[in-house]
Design a protein around this nucleic acid. Structure first.
Length: 264
DNA sequence: AGCTCTGTTATCTG
DNA sequence: ACAGATAACAGAGC
């Protein structure tokens, strides 16, 4: 599930851990999502420390602990974070958990496309600080957007929007929503856009990220009824604007939903 | 039984 | 070298 706003929401599940001493860490390094974790490092770097800060960037999360380490978490396709009271009841898909006196803080991921990694160092890791601006950041302006368009001319718009190095946090449903709101067909090439269309796309990109953060990101509620979001997976779903049937096709390697009578 | 899924990456191809 | 396309990962739901 997790795109920009889902990630922001999930990260808050570990908020109650802030300030409490970590007494125990449970994980299985055989699992793909934890394969870079080394038991001895986890014990020496995390046990006895406490969670200090929580950051998100696109689909990534970073948890800073006292001492000298950060945990980076990516939720992949099916990852989620949970806070559980003690004693812990563990599901078979709980691959990483740390416990304080108050509770257990869980990373759960059935398909294991997500990832938990430990970074040791004084401060926030260098690679985190070098991530590109988020879409809602002031730094993310039309000039930057146009420079991305210049470098990715040959991509269909759908594949373009999914590039995390350009639009951190945008995933499959958000990309479809952005294209629907900007009235552009997903298979159009970036190079085929007029400057007016590029501006439409830029504005919808900002609007969808903002709208998602204000709904999903706050309490996991759905975006407005007027959005494509509510209609796109319904069998026989219709365009909220024209009432005509929605189309579905694989574009840019992902199933894509759009409204042929609304998007050009 | 077979196909799908809101993600990423290694490995092809041109 | 580089941009874009594809397969693979693992499990559950239809």
């Amino acid at each position: 599930m997790p795109e920009l706003a889902e990630v922001a929401f999930h990260s808050k599940a570990w908020l109650p851990a802030i300030g409490d001493v970590i007494e125990e860490v449970l994980f299985n390094a055989d699992k793909r999502c934890c394969k870079s974790l080394v038991a001895e490092r986890i014990q020496s770097d995390l046990v006895g420390e406490s969670l200090e800060e929580l950051h998100t960037h696109g689909k990534r999360m970073l948890f800073k602990f006292s001492g000298q380490c950060c945990l980076s978490v990516h939720l992949g396709m099916t990852g989620s974070l949970h806070c559980s009271s003690l004693p812990l009841s563990r599901s078979k898909f709980d691959h990483f958990t740390f416990c304080t006196k108050e509770g257990g803080f869980i990373f759960r991921d059935p398909r294991q496309f997500g990832k938990v990694e430990l970074f040791v160092g004084e401060e926030i890791p260098e690679w985190w600080r070098l991530l590109p601006p988020e879409v809602l950041d002031l730094m993310f302006n039309f000039e930057l957007f146009e420079s991305y368009c210049e470098r990715r001319k040959r991509r269909p718009l759908k594949a373009f929007l999914l590039l995390q190095e350009c639009f951190p946090g945008v995933g499959n449903w958000m990309a479809d929503e952005i294209l629907w709101q900007s009235r552009l067909k997903p298979n159009r090439l970036v190079s085929a856009l007029s400057s007016e269309e590029r501006l439409q796309l830029f504005n919808s990109l900002k609007a969808v990220c903002r709208g998602a953060m204000d709904t999903v990101g706050v309490d996991y509620s759905d975006p407005p009824e007027s959005w494509l979001f509510r209609h796109r997976w319904k069998p026989g779903g219709n365009c909220p604007q024209t009432g005509d049937p929605l189309a579905r096709e694989t574009i840019g390697g992902r199933t894509t939903c759009w409204s042929p009578s609304w998007q050009a």
